[in-house]
């Protein structure tokens, strides 16, 4: 199982590295979103300060959407999904491998985005452990839910437009929880960020279990 997870994740990351899409397109897009939000709110500095966490996670959700669409397309473009079934790879391993690859790409972009909010929004980090933990736990939830829904819409003709409609509402708890936890980590709002982290962990765990159980059915049916 672990070998298969590594195999699938390694393959997806190698494809990503070769195509340079995260580096040359997704990352600039994410930074551009931050800059544009900055332009829109810079005239009202207190609003920008208060909204920094939310803007960060909205940018992450957009990036997550792009990463999941790309991850789904890798398997659907030339019939690789069927070949994975024929190869006999455990569907749960395919799910976990693909989710892991998406999560690692997201964490890479989030690292740059944290730098972005420090540079563009003049944000300061009050609690680095909370900030890092929030990024990791929320990213796991985004990657797991995204990979699961990506498989669900894989057989749909207009999947590029269907996926955001399905995925963004599902990720609303991540947006809320991660924003609150980030508020605490950045010291912009006095909340208990660690408590919100619990919500994020629960969301991630549910989606990992659900994905590991349901991915095989989705591979078969879509």
């Amino acid at each position: 199982m672990w070998a298969d997870i590594r195999l699938i994740a390694g393959k997806d990351l190698r494809i990503e590295w070769r195509s340079r899409i995260t580096l040359s397109q997704v990352l600039p897009f994410a930074l551009l979103v931050l800059v544009l939000f900055g332009f829109a709110l810079d005239a009202n500095r207190p609003v920008l300060d208060a909204a920094t966490s939310g803007l960060f996670w909205i940018a992450v959700l957009f990036v997550g959407l792009m990463a999941v669409q790309r991850s789904t397309a890798i398997e659907t473009t030339d019939g690789a999904r069927r070949a994975l079934l024929l190869a006999g790879v455990e569907p749960a391993a395919v799910f976990l491998g693909k989710a892991l690859a998406v999560a690692l790409q997201l964490l890479f972009v989030e690292t740059a985005l944290v730098g972005g909010v420090i540079v563009f929004y003049d944000a300061s980090i009050e609690s680095f452990p909370l900030l890092a933990a929030t990024c990791v736990v929320a990213t796991v939830g985004i990657a797991a839910a995204g990979t699961l829904l990506g498989a669900l819409v894989a057989g749909v003709r207009a999947r590029e437009t269907v996926l955001p409609i399905l995925l963004l509402p599902v990720l609303a708890p991540v947006l809320i929880g991660a924003t609150r936890a980030f508020d605490d980590a950045l010291g912009t709002v006095a909340v208990d960020g660690w408590a919100w982290l619990g919500l994020l962990a629960g969301f991630g765990a549910i989606n990992i279990v659900l994905g590991a159980l349901a991915y095989g059915v989705l591979l078969e049916e879509t």
């Binding site: 195999l7 393959k11 190698r14 195509s19 030339d78 070949a83 024929l86």
Partner: peptide, 26 residues
């Protein structure tokens, strides 16, 4: 099964594709 699709990943080399499918199929 050789279907109409080739089930190959465009961004991987020929060798990497076959190594991947060999490993996946044990």
């Amino acid at each position: 099964l050789l279907g109409h699709d080739t089930a190959l990943y465009d961004d991987l080399s020929v060798r990497e594709n076959l190594d991947f499918w060999a490993a996946a199929s044990r």
